[in-house]
């Protein structure tokens, strides 16, 4: 069996985590401080292998510290979306009937508005900061997960092993938690991974538009600031852009790989 996507995706994500973890001691200084001449090309000065931006800040330091911010925002917001989405989806799918109808109407309310618009509106209401960005991304992310979990619970609810637990008198919450959830886990892991990629891209887009946290250096923000020098110094945009691309690709490969790895057993067993 070919698990190349899984391996490549896994390595990329591992590298990202390593970058984020090591940012503090490889680049101990604040990446926002000006350290050299502006717009040094990559390789021009060996001290700044990826060059500097228009304000003379080290791009390499920005990439490392940006990885930290991107991953933190991605993981925290996805975890929140996953937790809420799983809770709502599980209850809706298992209970069915009016509970299901009600919960699904609420989730449709969120899905009816274009996601990015909703985030922008939310951020205009609450001022942009790391916390509000994470909150906004989670709020738009949970309904899709809730629908996925609900579909999974509806199928698993009818399986005989679940009914066999009803016959022995197991309570609804216990059945959801100990019987159905472990069997729905593959789907959750896969969609969670994809959700991290989506969240990172959303945050980058927000920073690009100037709706990011002004006190935080992120890849999106770096791209946004390099926009003006695109003609004379395209690397200022290209380097964080590439980092973003590879990250999204890595997470998607990991998600797909996990899907192939986990799904057949979960469903056919």
């Amino acid at each position: 069996m070919i698990r190349l996507p899984l391996v490549i995706g896994g390595l990329i994500v591992l590298a990202l985590v390593a970058m984020a973890a090591s940012a503090g001691w490889i680049f101990p200084d604040d990446p926002m401080t000006m350290v050299a001449e502006p717009l040094l090309w990559p390789g021009q000065d060996p001290a700044f292998p990826l060059g500097t931006d228009s304000l003379g800040r080290d791009i390499a330091a920005g990439i490392f510290h940006g990885a930290r911010a991107s991953l933190a925002i991605g993981f925290i917001s996805s975890s929140a979306a996953l937790a809420l989405g799983t809770l709502v989806g599980a209850v809706a799918g298992y209970r069915g009937g009016r509970v299901d109808d009600g919960l699904m109407r609420i989730s449709e309310l969120f899905q009816a508005i274009p996601q990015f618009m909703l985030i922008i509106v939310l951020l205009v209401i609450f001022r942009p900061s790391v916390a509000t960005i994470i909150l906004a991304i989670s709020i738009v992310g949970w309904p899709a997960i809730a629908r996925l979990v609900r579909a999974e619970f509806i199928v698993l609810r009818e399986r005989e092993f679940v009914q066999s637990c009803r016959v022995i008198g197991m309570s609804g919450p216990a059945i959801m938690l100990t019987q159905i959830l472990p069997n729905a886990l593959p789907v959750l892991i896969v969609s969670g991974t994809i959700q991290v990629a989506t969240a990172i891209l959303m945050e980058a887009a927000l920073s690009f538009l100037g709706l990011g946290d002004p006190n935080l250096l992120t890849w999106g923000g770096m791209i946004g600031m390099g926009r003006d020098q695109l003609r004379e110094a395209w690397f200022v945009v290209a380097v964080p852009g590439l980092a973003l691309l590879i990250t999204a690709l890595g997470l998607n490969l990991l998600g797909d790989g996990l899907n192939d790895l986990l799904d057949p057993r979960g469903r056919r067993a």
Binding site: R159, E160, F161, V162, Q163, S164, C165, V167, I168, G169, Q179, P182, N183, R265, A269
Partner: peptide, 17 residues
């Protein structure tokens, strides 16, 4: 429930894998 139990038809589907 303790007084009455159930054995299902499909021995593959009725046990949590």
């Amino acid at each position: 429930r303790r007084q009455m139990q159930f054995v299902f038809q499909d021995p593959f589907a009725s046990l949590n894998p």
